[in-house]
Write a protein that binds this DNA or RNA. Sequence first.
DNA 1: TATTGTTATACTCTATAACTATA
DNA 2: TATAGTTATAGAGTATAACAATA
Lengths: 134, 134
Amino acid sequence: MQLVRTFSRVQRVIVQTLAAQDVTLPQFDLLATLRFSDGVTQQELAERLLVTKGNVCGLIDRLEKLGWVERRPDDHDGRVNRLHLTSRGRRKVEAVLPQHDAVVLRMMQGVSPDQVHALQSVLDQVERQATSDE
Amino acid sequence: MQLVRTFSRVQRVIVQTLAAQDVTLPQFDLLATLRFSDGVTQQELAERLLVTKGNVCGLIDRLEKLGWVERRPDDHDGRVNRLHLTSRGRRKVEAVLPQHDAVVLRMMQGVSPDQVHALQSVLDQVERQATSDE
DNA sequence: TATTGTTATACTCTATAACTATA
DNA sequence: TATAGTTATAGAGTATAACAATA
C-alpha cells in the first residue's frame, strides 16, 4: 500500500522538523490542541489525542517541567484540572507552527489546486471512516 | 493542517490493528520489506527503513527472539549478515498483510476510483518531495 | 459507586556514541 | 582506514492496572 508508505515518510519528515525545534510530535499535538482549546480537562484531552489519561498525565508532566503548560484546579469540581498554555508555551507553539506548515506546504509543492481540492475531499472521507473504526 | 491530522488518525488505526495481531508498526515494516527483499543486509535495511543500524539491530534481536527472522552470515564478507524470514515469519506476515490491507481499504471506502487515481498522483508527488527533504 | 487524575511497571522505539571484527 | 554490526545509555511514548481524592 503506497498510501501507508507515503504517510510514514511524511510523518518522519514532520517528526524530524519538530525535533530540530526540540518538540516531539505528541507534544506538538498537545500544544496545538491547547492553542485552540485552552482550559480543557486532562480527560477531554486524552480523548481528543486518543491516548489514556495516564499517558496524558506523563505528557503534561514533561510539558509543565518545560514551562509550556500549566494545570489549574477547576473552580467547581475538585477532581478536575484545566490545562492552559503559559506565555512561553504560546510563544513556543506560535514559533513552531509556521515551520511545521512550511514543511507540509513544501511537500505539497507541485500538487495542483485541483488536486489539493480532490485530496481534501478524500481526506474528509478517510477521516470519517477512520474515526468510525475506533 | 488537515493533512497531518488525518495521517495521524490513519496511522493510529493501523497501529491498533497491528497491535491486535501482536505486531508493532516498525516490526511490520521490517517483515513486509523482507518479504520482497529476502537476503538484504542490516545496513541496507537500516537505510530503507530510515533508522540507524543500531536500531535495526535491536529490532532484529526482538524479531529473532520471536522466531520470525534469522541472520545468516554472508559467504564472502565476514562482516555482513543477510536477513531472511523464517517460515513462521513468512506465515506471520502473510497473515497480517490481508488484515492490514483490509483496514486501509475500509478507510478508503466511499472514495471514488477517480479520486483514488488523483490521490495516487498526489502521493507520488508528495513522496518525491518528502524524500528529497531528507 | 463513578469519575478525575496520579503512580507504578514493563516494553518498544529512537538517538547517540563507543566498541568489535573484518575488509 | 573504512565498513558492518553490536552494545550501552538515556529518554519519550504507550499499554495496563492499581491507587487516592472527589463527586
